[in-house]
Design a protein around this nucleic acid. Structure first.
Lengths: 220, 220
DNA sequence: TTGTAATTTTAGCTATGGTGAAATATTGCA
DNA sequence: TGCAATATTTCACCATAGCTAAAATTACAA
């Protein structure tokens, strides 16, 4: 039994009151008892994971809202002096805009997509919003094409297979903000390191260098 | 006891294997037994909330990664035809870039900050990244000032008291992406509606119309 | 002040969260 | 291929946490 019980109660009560709901209403919607919810809100009892998910759903909030978020440093990234990463000029070059720390949710990258560029299809956890700063870009998601130009945005789930194309002769600048950690972040902060031999690692990195994810791996 | 137990096991195992960790290593780090972790990974057992948080911390991931993410529609927002919201020309005008659905994590807004604008201080859940599209802006976070110009970004926790200033005679355009739901979203989708009389609501809205949060409330 | 609704308290139950140890599967090496 | 070591699964079990229902208390509106 792990110590340090979580205190989700205050946030649950705040959310409930903001929506002007009574315990009875929430009890009916969740199928939990009024008394239990009262105890949860005062941190006398901790709900099970599935009960918390149910409560969150009824309050129309993501579960993560109720969990402690780690401290986030303020981080400025200035256009001058910002490193651009690309191994191959024919690939996307990246400028990282966000800071990194364990548990961070947001990652922002400015991408300079070269003319005629065509990325491999990728899919990963999270949600993404892209904003076209200049030029034209095509996003293909689940075989659906979206042609975007400066000022346009696209909001999509990164879990869906997606790829990027620049069909023009000009470089396109795109701002991409997502909730998925960029590759390389986890290896850099916190967590545990693996045990034993690492000979199989080289092969993996070599493969990853070939595509979009390989490119992202360069950001360190 | 709510039905539909959550299945976090597959993702936990994936994360563990990606980091090349054994169950024994994770068990040592979490203080949980090997057998239990094995059962958790195969969804035979569901961990308690605090155990899940501990596991997530050891795997250096946010808990939300292990929870089912709702389906996200693809949404394009084009510059032409995008509605701009501002009651008062002296206030920030907003163009919403992101789509809305229950459980969404990301929200993006393009803000046109008028000359000499000074917002009220605000603080809310979540994380935020701002990117200056044009002009100059000052963000004050916890009494620390950050002067940003086109191409600069700032990544900060929205939980910290923050406010925005445009000290120039020009309009500044800023792209703001955050993990906190915009006001008005919860009332529009899912969740429960409050009971009883709503006479007190009018007074609340009137107050909120005066400041930054009042402005956000206009987005519907 | 009174009545009703909302919340808190209390006593209690049972199933689940988690253990330790044995059994089994996997992996690496000679 | 065989074997030893490591990793994982299985199994039997138990304590308590997750949650209930009902009574008691508080809050609020008329």
């Amino acid at each position: 039994m792990t110590s340090d019980p979580l205190k989700v109660g205050v946030k649950i009560r705040e959310a409930r009151k903001q929506r002007r709901l009574t315990l009875q209403r929430v009890a009916e919607a969740t199928g939990l008892s009024i008394g239990f919810l009262s105890q949860v809100e005062r941190d006398i009892t901790t709900p099970s994971l599935s009960s918390l998910v149910t409560i969150a759903k009824v309050l129309d909030l993501p579960v993560s809202v109720f969990l402690h978020q780690p401290e986030i440093p303020n981080a400025v990234s200035r256009r001058e002096g910002r490193a651009s990463y690309a191994i191959n000029p024919a690939w996307i070059s990246y400028e990282r805009l966000s800071t990194t720390f364990p548990g961070q949710m947001l990652n922002a990258v400015k991408m300079n997509v070269p003319p005629r560029y065509l990325s491999e299809t990728t899919a990963h956890e999270g949600e993404e919003i892209v904003y076209v700063l200049s030029g034209t870009i095509r996003y293909v998601i689940d075989d659906t094409s979206f042609d975007l130009k400066a000022g346009d945005t696209l909001h999509f789930s990164a879990q869906r297979p997606h790829r990027v194309q620049n069909p023009t002769d000009q470089v396109t600048e795109v701002l991409s903000v997502g909730t998925q950690q960029l590759f390389g972040d986890a290896a850099r902060h916190g967590g545990l390191s693996p045990v034993g031999k690492e000979t199989s690692r080289k092969g993996h990195e070599k493969i990853a260098m070939r595509g979009t994810e390989g490119e992202k791996e360069v950001i360190r």
